[in-house]
Design a protein around this nucleic acid. Structure first.
Lengths: 221, 221
DNA sequence: TTCGCCGCTATTGGATACATTGAAGAAGGA
DNA sequence: TCCTTCTTCAATGTATCCAATAGCGGCGAA
């Protein structure tokens, strides 16, 4: 009754139906299984997950707070179709926050982490499909930030990645081999800076990396 | 049935009980009416707002996503007692994001806005109580950012202000006249930069302003 | 035809009722 | 006395049911 929430680890209890529904829905959205702009009905989701509408509603509320779903009172829920302007805005926030995440992480990344990053960078280069690429790229960058002891920042960054997932897919699809080559080089430069524990240089590299991608997306419009 | 949510303005419909409950609860938390760390029971809130537990639960979920409330499954809800480390972390994110907000706003602030900022800066100086000070200071800074056409960023910044509200109160209470004098000077420098439409200088001033406050709070620990 | 009004229905919002959890306290033994 | 176990119950999680709303279609008039 008086269990201290400050001591509880942040992991939400997966036994709660609402979080299960939210997790599965989030996954379906991020993989494109449910396309942006499509409407989701509470009844349908409830049936799909074998639950009542209550946990479904709470899941939708959660995903709305993450920006993945748009709820219109008394009307319904839609998968958020993020427009170009919103995507650009998020990229500009990423340009400011991710350098901080990386810089705070650099000192705490283990040698094993760095080896892993090196392997992952190569695997990104070798990705054959768009899906493979964005999945590996995501894991690479999130690992590079992961040792920053700034939990709120990490959650925020991951949310931004989720929101721009579809645009990253677009980026990979529209950039030729040239864009891929530049990204791969930036990844290697970042790893080099990390190896030297040069957090300032790492900041600059990741900033440029995000900014360049943002500008590419801006030009597509 | 097919109303496009993208066109709907972002204002949540206040007629929804859950948002009403959330708004009132948020206000009660920010004013310190409900102290950090205290437990909130769904039944109590439901009775207090004359509603059932369903909208109360949704309100709690919303406030949890804003970081104001901590929910522990099958246990209960507490008002988030933000510890010093979390506060510092948020300040470090603010140091990165608010310069962007200000810089994007500078070009769009009207002359009337700038006059208003000038008046507000004076009113902050003249604030007699801590409550007056933090209220005016909050409105001053949020106005300075308000013309940035980056809605997500503005929402994020306001959330961070909400989360650190109690620590700003602490800051004002612990800093002597000296801290006040420096802040006031920084406000004036910021307005001067805005008047010259010098967004880069404005960025530097607001960065230093937040950073100095953060360091003061760190030293208190 | 086209515009506006009105009732219908699908869908969401909220209330009530039931199930489940887990923490405090009682009871029992070592 | 202290520890373990069981019981109990307060509080949350979920299901079901009812109310309210918004959008659609039909109808009629200009």
């Amino acid at each position: 009754m008086t269990r201290n929430p400050q001591l509880a680890d942040g992991q939400p209890d997966e036994r709660l139906l609402s979080t299960q529904v939210a997790d599965q829905l989030r996954h379906a959205i991020l993989t494109g299984q449910i396309p942006p702009g499509s409407r989701v009905r509470q009844d349908e989701l409830a049936e799909r997950f074998g639950a009542s509408r209550i946990p479904v509603r709470e899941a939708l509320r959660l995903l709305e707070s993450e920006g993945l779903v748009v709820l219109v009172p008394n009307s319904g829920a839609w998968i958020n179709k993020i427009d170009r302007a919103e995507c650009i805005e998020i990229y500009r926030m990423r340009e400011r926050l991710e350098p901080l995440a990386l810089s705070e992480s650099v000192a705490h990344l283990s040698d094993a982490d760095i080896d892993r990053l090196t392997v992952m960078a190569r695997e990104i280069q070798e990705a054959a499909t768009v899906e493979e690429y964005i999945d590996r790229d995501r894991k690479f960058h999130l690992l590079s930030y992961s040792r920053a002891v700034m939990p709120k920042l990490l959650v925020t960054v991951e949310r931004f990645w989720n929101l721009t997932q579809h645009y990253r897919r677009l980026y990979i699809a529209t950039t030729g081999g040239e864009g891929r080559w530049i990204s791969d080089a930036e990844h290697r430069l970042m790893i080099e800076a990390i190896k030297r524990r040069d957090s300032e240089e790492a900041e600059r590299v990741i900033f440029s990396h995000i900014r360049r991608t943002r500008i590419h997306l801006q030009r597509l419009g």
